[in-house]
């Protein structure tokens, strides 16, 4: 593995190897001194051209837990404001000695272009509505921790699939690891053509709810036009929200997941968000563990040091 850009086409052995390493790093995170010297002397640059709270911090936490140094970049305070192109920004950061770049960008394929230019390993931290592979890894780890494995698991992903890089990543990771995935959304929030997707599709959330082991709730992405394609927030919540009432119809062992940030009152009710069966904060913790695994594997770190 030279870069981590997508979940599409990544085989089961590769996913399993990353999750196995993540399990080990999860254990490291819970030591009294949660830090190993595996990537000492390496420099990880996080380049987020789009707002982010958890992903950027999570990568930086992961890098530091492996004793790597971090360089960080955020568009509001950078030369982007002066008109510098992505390519020049990448070459500049490379010239400072970055050994790996994590890139988030609003444009599809941005991480692929950076990989062409950078000459160092690149991790896609989210490109437009396309891919967000480390999210799929942390979601897979969360499911694996809870259920022991994904084989035969039934997962519903509900909400703004059309604009979701999380859905486009989870679908491939979950199904490669053996789960069955059903997408639930109004027609205007589904991708226009699902030929070749290993999924079932439904617009009836309640019909799907009673059968699934996990419900993955997506945020409505107002910033990508997600709010203009259904009649009103109230109607959306009525049909596709993970309301307290709907939560009570789930099987007792069904869990709820969400990639964050959650917008309580739209796609998820406050009562669900704080229920122990809502795994949002475990997902966040697992995010650090899988990102440690990804950085470790891409930078060829050694577990022996």
């Amino acid at each position: 593995m030279k870069h981590l850009l997508t979940m599409e086409g990544v085989d089961r052995a590769t996913l399993t190897s990353l999750l196995d390493d993540a399990d080990e790093f999860y254990e490291v995170m819970h030591r009294p001194i949660p830090k190993v010297p595996a990537l000492r002397g390496k420099t990880v640059a996080t380049m987020f051209f789009e707002p982010s709270t958890r992903t950027k911090m999570s990568f930086e936490r992961a890098a530091k837990s492996l004793s790597a140094d971090t360089l960080s970049f955020s568009p509001g305070t950078s030369s982007l404001k002066k008109g510098e192109s992505l390519k020049d920004t990448v070459l500049t950061v490379k010239a400072m000695g970055a050994d790996l770049m994590v890139v988030r960008h609003t444009s599809t394929g941005a991480a692929w272009r950076v990989a062409e230019w950078a000459g160092v390993p690149v991790v896609n931290g989210g490109d437009g509505a396309h891919q967000h592979p480390t999210q799929a890894l942390l979601d897979s780890l969360t499911l694996r921790q809870h259920f022991g494995g994904l084989d035969g698991l039934r997962v519903a992903i509900v909400g703004d699939i059309r604009h979701s890089r999380v859905a486009r990543s989870d679908v491939w990771a979950f199904t490669t690891l053996g789960a069955e995935v059903t997408l639930v959304a109004p027609p205007t929030l589904l991708p226009p053509d699902l030929v070749g997707w290993p999924v079932a599709v439904s617009s009836d959330f309640d019909d799907v709810l009673s059968e699934v082991d996990a419900v993955y709730v997506l945020r409505v992405q107002a910033e990508r036009g997600g709010a203009s394609v259904f009649p009103s927030v109230a109607e959306y919540r009525q049909r596709y929200g993970m309301t307290n009432a709907r939560f009570n119809t789930l099987k007792p062992d069904t869990i709820v997941m969400h990639p964050g940030p959650m917008i309580r009152g739209i796609e998820i009710d406050g009562g669900v968000a704080v229920d122990p069966r809502c795994k949002v904060l475990e997902q966040v913790t697992n995010g650090v563990a899988v990102r440690m695994a990804v950085l470790f594997q891409l930078l060829g770190g050694s577990k022996d040091v």
């Binding site: 599409e8 599809t108 437009g128 509505a129 396309h130 979701s164 226009p192 053509d193 699902l194 997707w197």
Partner: peptide, 20 residues
Amino acid sequence: AGGQMHEGAVSSRLGMAGVP
């Protein structure tokens, strides 16, 4: 509006707004 490529199976996978 916002379309980047042909609307179809490829745009759906790439997550790009399509031009039908």
